[in-house]
């Protein structure tokens, strides 16, 4: 819609850096870091939306700025909505990380119970299939209660790093 839509280079670089750093943090195990990653990527996406709105201009209020000098208000409105959503979700994830810390002493995202079962079988060099008819292992719920993270095991060696 905007013929002279050449985005500012600074913004583009900023978006790239935010996305790169955010994705790196999203891949961490700790929920707090994942949350920081989400905030960074979210802000990167917000900047992207701002760039999508075209060149910068005056406040888009009729009577204050001439129409062709206005910046695009729609992109700003969408960014504003997105910021509000991000805020709410940040609060929720923070609460979840805190609850996880209360329960487990850390806020690591646990492994999938079944993944861990398979990993344990592989470690024992046992056959990967387990016929459900044999019923020799516990139920999934029992496994989930007894299961420990590999990260947890590492920390048990030295001391619980993030519990303090």
């Amino acid at each position: 819609m905007n013929p002279e839509m050449v985005p500012s280079g600074v913004l583009v670089v900023a978006i790239g850096v935010l996305f790169a750093a955010g994705v790196y943090l999203l891949l961490e195990r700790s929920l707090t870091r994942v949350l920081l990653g989400f905030i960074l990527v979210g802000n990167g996406a917000n900047l992207l939306m701002l760039v999508a709105g075209g060149r910068a201009g005056g406040a888009p209020i009729a009577g204050i700025t001439p129409v062709d000098e206005m910046s695009d208000p729609l992109a700003q409105a969408m960014v504003l909505t997105s910021i509000v959503i991000t805020l709410a979700l940040t609060a929720f994830v923070l609460a979840m990380a805190y609850r996880s810390w209360q329960l487990n002493g850390h806020d690591e995202v646990a492994d999938d119970v079944e993944d861990r079962r398979i990993a344990r079988l592989a470690a024992r060099n046992a056959p990967v299939y387990r016929d459900v008819d044999q019923g020799e292992a516990g139920t999934l719920d029992e496994d989930a209660a007894a299961a420990r993270d590999e990260t947890e095991r590492d920390e048990a060696g030295d001391k619980t790093g993030e519990a303090t």
Binding site: F38, A45, L48, V51, D112
Partner: peptide
């Protein structure tokens, strides 16, 4: 909380992808 952490993180990621798609569509 264990199950929710996975669900929330995955959903957050998909929401960001959706938002990026909207931004690009708008651009």
């Amino acid at each position: 909380i264990r199950a929710g952490a996975v669900y929330v993180v995955v959903s957050l990621l998909s929401s960001i992808l959706f938002f990026v798609a909207i931004a690009l569509a708008y651009a």
